[in-house]
Computed example of a mutant assay.
Amino acid sequence: MEEIIVENDIVKLRPVQMSDIEAIANAANDERIWEHMSVTLLTQEAVENYIENAIKEREKGISYMFAVIEKKTDNIVGCTSFLDISFPHKRLEIGATWYNPTVWRSAINTNCKFLLFQYCFEVLNLNRIQIKTGHENYRSQKAIERIGAVKEGVLRNHMIRKEGTIRHTIMYSVIVEDWEKLKTRFIEALLK
């Protein structure tokens, strides 16, 4: 996949790179971020491994991780990824998204999702984008529903979390037939 950079006045998304270690470590340094995530990035070594793995997976076409840069500060405030990429089936997942709590409930997530959906539907010409989250991650579920994704169901006993407990996964999607209506909704929300 070619280098992808999408941006507007609020955020810039670009591929993560090794030079992002310090900035990502700073953004990731809050235990609250990792409560529902499959990784924990509270050490320099964890962040280095995270970025190295992301670059390897990007080179293999498995996934594509973006650094999320808040335009007003020019700081990395999180990461988000394309996962489960299947161009033959014209679909992918947007996930492994995390943000520093300073931007929770801000315009960052809405702008990121808008730019990624727009890229997926209007440049990559995909048919489906899926988003999933854990059954106990209510903040994430509300954020996904707020952007207009459709709840498709629950994958029971889908994953074992890092502490060994079972996670049921809530599955959401946006399909190409939803995009024009959703795009209008996004634009109205972003203009507020």
Results as ranks from 00 to 15, higher is better:
I5G: 00
V6K: 06
V6M: 07
N8F: 01
N8P: 03
V11Y: 04
V11S: 05
K12I: 13
R14M: 04
Q17Y: 08
S19V: 12
D20V: 02
E22L: 04
A28C: 10
D30S: 01
D30I: 04
R32N: 09
W34V: 11
M37A: 14
M37Q: 15
V39P: 05
L41W: 02
E45S: 10
N49Q: 09
N49Y: 05
N49D: 11
E52C: 09
N53C: 11
K56N: 13
G61W: 07
G61I: 04
Y64P: 02
F66A: 06
F66P: 09
F66K: 04
F66W: 13
V68I: 15
E70Y: 06
K72V: 10
N75D: 08
N75V: 10
I76E: 00
V77T: 05
S81V: 03
F82Y: 15
F82K: 10
D84P: 04
S86F: 02
F87A: 15
H89F: 11
L92R: 07
G95M: 12
A96D: 07
T97P: 01
Y99V: 03
N100R: 02
T102L: 04
W104I: 13
W104P: 09
W104A: 05
R105I: 09
I108K: 01
T110S: 15
K113L: 05
F114G: 07
L116C: 07
L116I: 11
F117T: 01
F121Q: 05
E122Q: 11
V123I: 15
L124Y: 05
R128N: 08
I129C: 00
Q130M: 12
K132E: 08
G134Q: 00
H135K: 10
N137Q: 12
R139E: 13
R139H: 01
S140A: 07
K142Y: 08
K142P: 01
A143P: 07
A143C: 10
I144R: 06
R146S: 14
G148P: 00
A149N: 08
V150S: 14
K151V: 12
E152T: 13
G153L: 11
V154E: 12
V154G: 03
V154A: 03
L155I: 11
N157S: 15
I160G: 03
R161C: 09
K162C: 02
T165P: 10
H168I: 11
T169S: 14
T169E: 00
M171D: 13
I175Y: 07
I175A: 11
V176Y: 08
V176L: 03
E177F: 08
W179M: 00
E180S: 07
E180Y: 10
T184K: 15
K192A: 14
